[in-house]
Design a protein around this nucleic acid. Structure first.
Lengths: 115, 115
DNA sequence: TCGTCATATGAACAGATCTTCAACTATGAG
DNA sequence: CTCATAGTTGAAGATCTGTTCATATGACGA
């Protein structure tokens, strides 16, 4: 249930890299645009109201992190989510921001600090 | 199933804020330290090998974003995850970085683009 | 081949942000 | 009250990062 008994620093860095990529509003909007059917760069730019250049810069980072996947069809390149874990991650975070009143955590009941 | 038909820019900004907070290695390590039982600031500092001052700075941001929750017991302040959505978010992202070979997405199967 | 559309890339600047250091508040013991 | 411990806060600086502009690549049609 818990993420892991002990998470190495390397994993923490890798994890942080992923979250950091989703942590920019413009770049996140690019990702959100790719939640549905595969979409080409110019359409992403139109929907997000970002310049094609900027979109391309962001797409390169998202591709490198395997958050998005690219596929060329003729002149256009279509982008989709690389795997469903990213979708779940975003869904969970949406649930978090959507429930401001929910502060009662079920887990971590007893205070048992080792040292 | 999908996150939402259309996500507003405000939500995107709010979402990005959350991800950005998890996007720093030091700050993420602070959060990871709080995955288990409530833990006090000095213990977080020891485990993460960060200065108490820096830990406190990070904790303030994480508290403000309702990622962590604080509770005072005597001189010490104990921190825990504010809700389970954050735990899920991290778990999903761990799954993402742990499975580099998984590039076949179950959703978004057919490429059905007009253009 | 040439021209055009779609996308990608590199350099450079402005703005944000992580970290440190010092000083400050709060709680409890003697 | 005084002291020590635990934690917080503010300012300042070095670093990183998002964005823009200009240029380059790739693909298709004439």
């Amino acid at each position: 249930m818990s993420v892991s008994p002990s998470i190495t620093d390397d994993l923490a860095i890798e994890l942080a890299d992923m979250f950091r990529l989703l942590g920019d509003p413009s770049r996140l909007r690019v990702v959100l645009t790719c939640l549905g059917a595969p979409i080409c760069v110019s359409d992403i730019a139109t929907l997000t109201r970002l310049s094609p250049s900027l979109v391309s810069h962001h797409l390169r980072l998202l591709r490198a992190a395997r958050i998005l996947r690219a596929e060329r069809l003729g002149k256009q390149v279509f982008y989709t989510l690389a795997d469903h874990h990213v979708r779940c991650t975003i869904t969970d975070m949406v649930a978090h921001v959507a429930e401001p009143a929910e502060t009662i955590d079920t887990a971590a009941a007893d205070v048992n600090v080792a040292a």
